[in-house]
Design a protein around this nucleic acid. Structure first.
Lengths: 199, 199
DNA sequence: ATATATGATGCAGTTTTATATATCAAAGTT
DNA sequence: AACTTTGATATATAAAACTGCATCATATAT
């Protein structure tokens, strides 16, 4: 009559080890005796919710009741959440936003600039790719150059340079190695799609 | 010394009511006495993990330990996974998963099939794109054909057909009109509990 | 070699959950 | 009106978690 208890015990132990805590150290943090932690991790006790909550809290976890439909999502995110890749994703999204805003400004101030529509389409097309496929440094470069378009005397040079960087970005997105490509295949696809919704 | 216990009790009650179950009905389903369910919902007992798991299971929920950092994202994605506005995305993701699993099986049973690596790479490359850019019907077709690869006498025909569909999928992802990207970027974060709290 | 850290396990005492059973008050149905 | 449903609450009992404390085996450091 128990379904997920083994998994919870394993999860607690894994989290403790990830944090590099001994059972005694966790005991101090959580206020649960070390002997009990050992039993909990071993799955030999059917622990109370309060004990679980205390341990979870000490391990920077939160107890959640998740609809079955969303379980695979949750599991993926538990793996991904602390990944070092996430900072890049957030930064890339910020660059995307800044680029969009800058483009909007330029379109208002110089709507007839030749090649501007072409650049706009290229930027829009980046939305076809996952954010994690986009190169942060190139995105930064792109934004920098686009900002130069607005400066008198530099319009065409900057615009052409922008188009060149766009090609680089697109090529990298299409041909660079997939991140964690071996792991990617075994992961539900929408674990990566989370990036869309990080507004 | 308790952190999330009240929330868990409330969540359980909300889920029960959403499903339109009485405590006695839930008692039958979960194998936990009605009297105990009443106490649990009232928060007057510090229930054991096994009881919680049984109740969760009966309510189509699963207990999860989620990193604190990921809580907001979990909520967001749980909504997306269930939201009627994103059925295609969920369905596409499921297709991706099934395709990956099927490919894994094929690679194990016929690792030397000519062209298989090429197909595998094509499928992997789909991960460069946002899920929303992928065509559900084509994905279904692809999965169907890939399943035929495993059938004797149909290997090469099915594999070549698969590669053809892959090209279609990729072309559509690259050239189809973009979904409303402005809406995507401005989408707010959702609450994990919102579905049940609507009741 | 000794000292220290770690997780596992035993013991005894205390507390609390879980259970079956029953009953009640209130609300709803016929 | 009588009957049914629902959630709350009481009782007695058994089982098990929880706790403090101690100790052990093993690994590591000095």
């Amino acid at each position: 009559m128990s379904y997920d208890i083994t998994g919870i015990a394993e999860r607690l132990q894994a989290a403790r080890k990830t944090k590099g805590l001994s059972q005694r150290e966790l005991s101090e943090l959580a206020g649960v005796p070390q002997a009990q932690i050992s039993r909990i991790e071993a799955g030999t006790v059917d622990l109370r919710l309060s004990s679980l909550a205390a341990l979870a809290h000490a391990l920077d976890l939160e107890l959640a009741l998740v609809p079955r439909k969303a379980v695979a999502v949750v599991r993926s995110l538990s793996r991904d959440a602390i990944s070092s890749n996430r900072k890049d994703v957030v930064a890339i999204q910020k660059e995307m936003q800044r680029i969009s805003e800058t483009m909007r400004g330029i379109q208002m101030s110089m709507p007839d600039l030749e090649g501007l529509q072409r650049l706009q389409k290229s930027i829009s097309d980046l939305h076809r790719f996952r954010v994690s496929m986009l190169d942060l440094e190139e995105m930064k470069k792109l934004r920098h150059i686009i900002e130069q378009i607005g400066r008198p005397g530099k319009e065409m040079v900057s615009l052409n340079e922008s188009l060149k960087i766009m090609r680089t970005i697109r090529n990298k997105a299409s041909h660079d190695p997939l991140p964690d490509s071996g792991d990617t295949l075994s992961r539900p696809a929408y674990s990566l799609d989370e990036e869309d919704d990080d507004a």
